[in-house]
Simulated assay, not measured.
Amino acid sequence: MPVRADSGTSRPLRADAQRNRDAILDAARETFEAEGVLAPLDGIALRAGVGNATLYRNFPTRDDLLAAVLQTNTAAALEEAAELARTLPPREALAEWLVRMAWQMRIWHDLPYCLSTACVDPDSPLTATRSPLLDRTGVLLDQAKRTGDARGAVTAEEVFELVTTLSWGVDRFGDDEQAARRRVGLATAGLFTEPVR
């Protein structure tokens, strides 16, 4: 089904406009993976085979483009969180979610930095990407609090900010998945109450 025009109208994009949009998104994903999310937008337009005006008509800012590229990743992450909540006890579900979030956010250089800007700018296009992840963190945190596995004074916002910071470290220190798991486990240990022995 074609994506609707960004202007908020109900008309779907023309076929050529949809192809341009898809090409931009594909080029952006490839560029972000290779160069990080602060890569020049001109290079993305060139890779997509479109002019700068076409890129900016579809995505007026870098954050608009990044938010659109991240939609698929966010949807997949939320499905994972729901599966964790269904299959693991609350403590383990929250701990695993924090590891997976930190690992996923590190996929492109400087993504944690860009997501952190949405904390202070509620009008940022990335708020729509960040908010569902924050909400899911809150749900898992509340479940762990109810079972006495997480400390009551900790907020979902604090936990999300911590994981965002950790994902920056995972990226910058070149952690593999095992090292990332250890880093997140060490850094978030204070979130959890002592397990009953």
Rank of each mutant, 00 (worst) to 15 (best):
V3A: 09
S124H: 04
A93M: 05
E83T: 12
G138H: 06
E33C: 10
P195V: 07
A180I: 07
L84K: 00
F32H: 04
G152V: 06
S7K: 08
L38R: 10
G185T: 02
M101W: 07
V154G: 02
A118R: 00
E30W: 02
E83G: 07
D64F: 03
V159E: 00
A189P: 06
A17N: 02
R57F: 05
A23T: 05
Q71F: 02
L115T: 02
A156E: 03
L13F: 14
A93Y: 02
T164H: 06
T54I: 12
R182H: 12
G190E: 05
A150G: 09
E177M: 13
L46M: 12
L115K: 01
R182M: 14
V170Q: 00
A102Y: 00
P122Q: 12
L66I: 04
A85Y: 00
Y113M: 14
N20I: 11
S167K: 01
S167D: 03
V154D: 00
E158D: 13
N52G: 14
V154E: 01
I24H: 01
A187Y: 00
T61S: 15
Y113D: 14
E79L: 13
N58K: 01
R100A: 12
L25V: 11
V184H: 03
E194T: 15
T188G: 04
R19Y: 03
P40A: 09
L162T: 12
A189L: 15
G152F: 13
L41V: 01
R130N: 08
H109L: 14
T127V: 06
V99H: 08
L98R: 14
V159Q: 00
D142F: 05
T117C: 12
T9W: 13
P195W: 13
L133A: 04
V139G: 04
A67G: 09
T188I: 05
A68M: 04
P132V: 01
E30I: 06
T87S: 14
V120T: 10
T155M: 06
R172S: 06
T137R: 02
P40G: 01
A15S: 11
R182N: 07
P60D: 05
R62F: 05
R183C: 10
L126Y: 02
T129W: 12
A34Y: 03
L191Q: 08
L65M: 07
T137Y: 05
W103N: 06
P132E: 03
L162V: 11
D42P: 01
L186W: 14
T127H: 09
N52T: 05
D142N: 11
